[in-house]
Design a protein around this nucleic acid. Sequence first.
DNA 1: TGTAGTACCTGAACCGGTTCAGTGATCCCA
DNA 2: TGGGATCACTGAACCGGTTCAGGTACTACA
Lengths: 339, 339
Amino acid sequence: MAKETIAGLAKRLGISKASVSYALNGQPGVSELTRRRVLDLAEELEWYPSSSARALSRSRAGAVGMVLSADPLLIGTEPYHMAMLAGIETALAEGDMALMLRMVGKDPAQERATYERWAGERKVDGVLVFDHLHHDPRPALLDRLGLPFVLHGAPESAAPPAFSGTTTDHAVDAATIVRHLHDRGHRRIAHVSGPRTFLHEEERIRGVAECAGGHGIEVVPYEADYALEAGHHAVVSLLHAPGDRPTAMVFGNDLMSMGGLLALRELGLRCPEDVAIVSWDDSLHCQLASPAVTALSRNPGMQGRVAAELLLALLDGGGPQTRSMPVSELVVRSSTAAA
Amino acid sequence: MAKETIAGLAKRLGISKASVSYALNGQPGVSELTRRRVLDLAEELEWYPSSSARALSRSRAGAVGMVLSADPLLIGTEPYHMAMLAGIETALAEGDMALMLRMVGKDPAQERATYERWAGERKVDGVLVFDHLHHDPRPALLDRLGLPFVLHGAPESAAPPAFSGTTTDHAVDAATIVRHLHDRGHRRIAHVSGPRTFLHEEERIRGVAECAGGHGIEVVPYEADYALEAGHHAVVSLLHAPGDRPTAMVFGNDLMSMGGLLALRELGLRCPEDVAIVSWDDSLHCQLASPAVTALSRNPGMQGRVAAELLLALLDGGGPQTRSMPVSELVVRSSTAAA
DNA sequence: TGTAGTACCTGAACCGGTTCAGTGATCCCA
DNA sequence: TGGGATCACTGAACCGGTTCAGGTACTACA
């Protein structure tokens, strides 16, 4: 079947291209009768307007982009991203926007190059950005490129109203975790965080330290990189360090928690009797582990959905908005069972 | 900065739009000197040609689409898809193609509607399709829509040369698993497969049955749906059924294996002593479980990459091709340790 | 010296939509 | 009865690239 065009429809109906266009887009300037005829014909022919022609004349791509920049290995194993993606895509589809996905390694230059290209080619109307960094160069870059964006997962403190973003109150989450451990009798805990280059990790570290201080709990900080091995290595180092050993450990994500659990097992230590464990991300891993791991459930799907909605609003001409995420819930499992 | 156009570049250089276009696209018709001047200016201005204008005049979208149609919950928890996605995206990026991702529920009508729209709007140049079904309506649909596609993961038997696709020899994989269990002394095994609507499950079932027959092994088939709970339920049913209980179980994916393991634990049965377990998909879940689960490692990243390359070749005007995947390797872990 | 061939370059048409300015026809109300 | 407002519709310009059919000027060769 030869591809129909708007001119073809117009000729069949004996009206002008303009009328067809107005009718299709729900714009005034056509009678109800004409509109119906156009719509009916389009449906009968299973015809849709060419997206590139439309994009060209409207100067709107009809798509938003997302760069997943992380270790490919990590991306594959962390369920977090996929769940978030599902939420994002659902919201975008409802707003009739396509999702363009790009995966690059950890190299920030590649992420940057992708944005430059997308902006230059006008391939996307906006982008979703993750993991706010210290001195994050991306907001300035995107501003310069004129590419609207939403920063997903910025810490509460660092959310200037200059751009759209979703924020999480990590201090509250930290308090939830620390109080739980305090209740269970722990007075010396280790905090195995992700890299401090992420602003949210910085805030979590501060949150844990502050709340712990208030409860007379000692905190041993440890910086790692979210990988399974990092969690393993953290536990080994922490337990071999001089001084009292912590009786509980908080890990920055589910993978590190698993690594930590593995290490405990290898060292012949029991969880939760010898060392309790809390994960800052919930996932199937935490549920399936033995013991099942107490975890902060953050609902990545819902969060992704909200971020996408913010971007849609921004593209619809709304000003920058900030939306704070609901407080996460701690799902208590065996890894912090009462002593 | 006002958006530059090809006409702007031409004016700056005192040449015609056509020359600029030829220069940019590496086409003959311009001197080396002119070409350099154009390229240099484009770089200096950080200018890229508008993708929609290009798409319109070339009648090529510069993107390929992929519909992930599955339980959102399953998508999030199965690492398989994400790894595959990473492989696909990498290959596409190398071929200068964008990836458009759409996630829909299990409803086939939505997947179909997405293809129809993409084809009508000329939003993508081709699509990647997964999980060949019995009487799969998609090849015919896509043919009718004139949308090139690659069917990823078709069983060997069902790969007509009429369309491009990657195939896996499930019979060989089945034999690998069955032989391993035979070596370990199992003579009665259960095969908890995914839905038989998937052609590859059908082939796995046949493969297991045949190889088992050759080795004097009895097979108890059980059809499930890839969910964690399904694996759990399968184990309960199988063990409560009259007759000898199987001494080993093969699960169609990692989630069901985990569910199965959970069920065994609840029933007070030990793995591998009472029941051994093999998973048809490897993943972190299998590694972390206790006992760690013996699994068939299928390298979804590489497979995705190959599928994407096939699609790129198809879009470059090549005829339909079929590429068979390398045989999977069985990673032996504790869940099938020698009795 | 004439002519065919080639390399380089250009104007204009085209891709398929959107949108603006303008034209009749109809309607309302003084 | 007439004048302005409203409605339905249209032709043409436009978005920003690609591509085709020439047009020079210069070289090669008889």
